[in-house]
Design a protein around this nucleic acid. Sequence first.
DNA 1: CAGTATCCACAATGATACTG
DNA 2: CAGTATCATTGTGGATACTG
Lengths: 109, 109
Amino acid sequence: MKSSATGCSVEEAMRLLGGRWRLLLVSYLLDGPKRFNDLRRDVPGISQRMLTLDLRALEEAGLVLRTVFAEVPVKVEYQLTEDGERLRPVVEVMRNFGLWLKARSALLV
Amino acid sequence: MKSSATGCSVEEAMRLLGGRWRLLLVSYLLDGPKRFNDLRRDVPGISQRMLTLDLRALEEAGLVLRTVFAEVPVKVEYQLTEDGERLRPVVEVMRNFGLWLKARSALLV
DNA sequence: CAGTATCCACAATGATACTG
DNA sequence: CAGTATCATTGTGGATACTG
């Protein structure tokens, strides 16, 4: 995304979390540490490429910690940092709104 | 955006609100009805085109009401619907997270 | 005033194949 | 297992000009 024009905090937050998958990934990480392929299973439809890119972005933002275990085959774990835990209310409010959206559209069908 | 792959409510919500401007527009509409050019002023950097497109999307989702006043020159007001008011907690939690983000990055500079 | 229309740039995402 | 590399496609946003 482009850089922020207004400097508004809502805009800043959406720049970081606005993509299609990021908040969704975070929502699964709220349950605890996950491996790369765990997340692939949790989020069917995401490509390996996007999973990597978005995890890296969250890592760079200090919200996710990536741990590599020197085993064979290699094992990599992703977990929220203490900072990343701050996203819990964001995910919850977004989930609630999404649930309401779905419930509403179910009424219209 | 593509249609939802997981059907997850977080994903559904982000599909509707995920763009660069939508939640930002909603945050201004939380203050009360606004005219087209009011919103242009509130959100410097948005193009007329995107303002129109995003307002239409929010209108179609039933979150925003568009009212045209038959005056000369014509006056159009946008306001949140009762459903749109449900976004208040979403905006607030996102704003808080954005504020925290900015505060944190200020520490690092 | 509040838009449309047209054209364009680039960011985001995806598909597929390959690898330490 | 957990990625990279490459290429293609779509989506998002912008510039400019025009209009009822």
